[in-house]
Write a protein that binds this DNA or RNA. Sequence first.
DNA 1: AACACATTGTTGCAATTGCAACATTTATAA
DNA 2: TTATAAATGTTGCAATTGCAACAATGTGTT
Lengths: 212, 212
Amino acid sequence: MIQIFDNISIKNRLKLLKLLETHTLHINKNSSIIPIISNENIIGIITKGYAQIIRTDHNGNRTLIEELQEYDIFGTEISSLKNKEYDLITKEPTDIILIDFANIINCKENNKSFYNQFTKNLLLIFTSKIKEKNERLEIITKKTIRNKLLEYFSIASKKHSSKHIYLPFTFTGLADYLGVDRTAMTRELKNLKDEGFIEIKNKRIELLYDEF
Amino acid sequence: MIQIFDNISIKNRLKLLKLLETHTLHINKNSSIIPIISNENIIGIITKGYAQIIRTDHNGNRTLIEELQEYDIFGTEISSLKNKEYDLITKEPTDIILIDFANIINCKENNKSFYNQFTKNLLLIFTSKIKEKNERLEIITKKTIRNKLLEYFSIASKKHSSKHIYLPFTFTGLADYLGVDRTAMTRELKNLKDEGFIEIKNKRIELLYDEF
DNA sequence: AACACATTGTTGCAATTGCAACATTTATAA
DNA sequence: TTATAAATGTTGCAATTGCAACAATGTGTT
């Protein structure tokens, strides 16, 4: 997985940050910053810590949109519609670099190799984000919880060429990812287990059926 | 909406295509090409015509993934998993430029302004693709058809600052976009109409309620 | 004009799902 | 450690949904 500063030396990273007129924020644990910046076309890079993007809709339901760790990028997640529904909440003390996207696009220093490397890294990161989102859409558009689970298993299994799947989140998180009610999902997982399709140990799921 | 060749002169476009070692295809109506290229990390640009990306799952169900018109880009849609489920089907005689993504990333000609403009255009196109997909995910993760419709209306209404929404696709297409059964959606639209929330004339929907 | 084909509208019904309300276990923080 | 919060498992039930099977209308092609 490519990261935003790959192939850019520490020295050049500093030059880059100056060139793009970035701002660095140091944020305490359990603070929120998105409301401050949500009106602008800004991307952020986490350089230390851990944070989550949470959306609260008008009913007060809160959903986890994305988890952010070191070198993760956010900002493209947040719809350009100016609404105050999004929060970035730090779960640890977190350092963030903010970049006005216009500065990236309008920068004239095309001869700076670190700047070109930076835009290439961004391109690669964006393509993988698009692919991730397509994958989730493929899964989530399946009509039943069972089919969503099976599609999720199928993709995860192909990715690692293995019938053993390790969940990267909690079961609660999986239900969110699939866009379904957690208890209904648990019920369906139990069915799949009882019918002999899968086996579950903690966050490990083993597929007992063939496909491909 | 930014397009891939914006701010690049016709002359420079030709230089760019040579620099990136692109291939141009002229394809008849109702032909398919994706299987030929799906194993590589390639993006395509439609320069003339009209095509659709269709996915056929192992049950034989076919779903429209994306519609492509002049200057649209495809390739990022297709999961990196090598499967033969995707088809690009031309609906008119169509011209396509194929670019190996590696050539974009590895190109060393950073001093060529048209190349830098091209990567910037790509960045902007990718960010808007990400935003589109996030929007669809926000809509599709609502738990009921009614709430999916209302979220769709809400986003469309905000986008054009109007309570009059014009559907960019057929109702069948809308059901696909929302990931729900068409007839169940029709039923729910009828409910919303009967309850006085909306009015429908052809592909125009008027919102009769307030929010924001 | 005559044809095939896609889109739309409707309805009954069975299957699936979300929700509420719990008990239990596991993490996390004071 | 202890208190607090988060995650998990279970179940009944009502609401929502997908599906099948139609008829009707609209669109496009030869």
